[in-house]
Write a protein that binds this DNA or RNA. Structure first.
Lengths: 213, 213
DNA sequence: GCCTGTGAATCCATTCACAGCT
DNA sequence: AGCTGTGAATGGATTCACAGGC
């Protein structure tokens, strides 16, 4: 039963992965899956799947496997995706626009409730229904009024740290940073930061490619 | 001296991170840095920095620290960023465009030499100098002719796996996948895949936020 | 005194292997 | 027979702590 004893960070990441495969399976009408099948879909070991899930409870049936519908519901509960999350995005360039248009976000409960940019040309532009680009000076006011929970940074890297500071100052405790610098949260304020630095992934590929030959 | 004995994957990722901080420091004119300072810039332990670097040689001076210019050169050598890498991108939507315009890529030696899309409307459009959108049917021919080394997938997720298969079929052995499904390389062909699934990172934030309350 | 490089110790994560349920 | 749930074993990665050089 939902033991709160030190759940590995890697487990949470994988659970999010299982969610994706399970959603797909349910769409295809598959009702049941074994840890073995799910594992190979996600490219992990089957004991890993079972152990990961076991941190949160017993969701399977011995001899049968997991009822996909139920497991999905359980995972959505675990990841707190059974309720909407309110996002504010800073930096409406190509990357920002791509994220806002990303249909999968909405499906999973992530709602962009505000968008900010420093370019005066862009202020006032409507992105989608209800979402109008506002100046960055409004962040503090808007974040409070709209109860923004997660701040997304898609500015050039030169602005990224300053934007992070503004977000934290506005009371936001969770940041997803897409700019290719490591954003550090102001110490103390207990702000979570996830850096999505894909240039690092590219460097990884380059390294491994150069080893192969 | 460059011992090839099992270098942890995490070490490579961090070395790429150090590279970013060091580039910034050099721009600022800082000539020297200690493992301690570099560590806190990157949010890691200082012993970690030293151990990571020690896998590849001895780059520091006891009592002083690391000469940034030299260390940068060494790291670029380690990550094989001392030569250009030829990329092909498939899917020229907002995300693809954002990547192509990303100035940091070019600076680090990554060159987009070809772009593909399935939308007939987009075929023939010029993105930047020399880069014209081609139909996906051309992937195999073009990949060989232009010696594409890394394939970047920025299509909708429904197309991602099929595109990956096409890339591998075209002889590409390295894929960076931005679509929010886990792309699996066709078994056997020794193809490296890095998945940049930022929806997973968001799920992570949601999970941790919900714990804090 | 300052700071690197590294074996040893610790911590964390993955995998094995099997008891137990259906 | 089939498959889950989990302690025990293994394997990796991080951190400690200190010898050694500037």
């Amino acid at each position: 039963m939902v033991r709160e004893t030190k759940i590995p960070g890697a487990t949470i990441e994988r659970i999010a992965l299982y969610l994706r495969s399970l959603e797909e399976l349910l769409d295809k009408g598959v009702p049941l899956i074994s840890s073995d099948k799910l594992a190979s879909l996600c490219g992990v070991n089957s004991a890993q799947v079972r152990k990961d899930l076991s941190y949160f409870g017993e969701f399977g049936v011995r001899g049968l496997g997991y009822e996909i519908h139920d497991l999905l519901k359980a995972i959505r509960g675990i990841l707190a995706l059974d309720r909407p999350w309110r996002l504010g995005i800073v930096g409406v360039g190509n990357m920002g626009t791509a994220l806002i248009r990303h249909e999968k976000f909405f499906k999973r409960g992530y709602r962009f409730v505000a968008a900010f940019d420093s370019d005066p040309e862009k202020i006032g532009k409507k992105l989608v229904h209800n979402l109008i680009i506002q100046p960055m000076s409004e962040i503090k006011k808007v974040a409070g009024a709209l109860k923004i929970e997660i701040g997304v940074i898609t500015t050039p890297s030169s602005q990224a740290q300053a934007v992070a500071d503004m977000l934290v100052d506005a009371g936001i405790r969770s940041i997803l940073n897409f700019s290719p610098i490591q954003v550090r949260p102001p110490k103390g304020k207990g702000c979570l930061v996830e850096n999505v630095d894909f240039t690092v992934k590219l460097d990884n590929l380059a390294y491994h490619l150069s080893k192969i030959h």
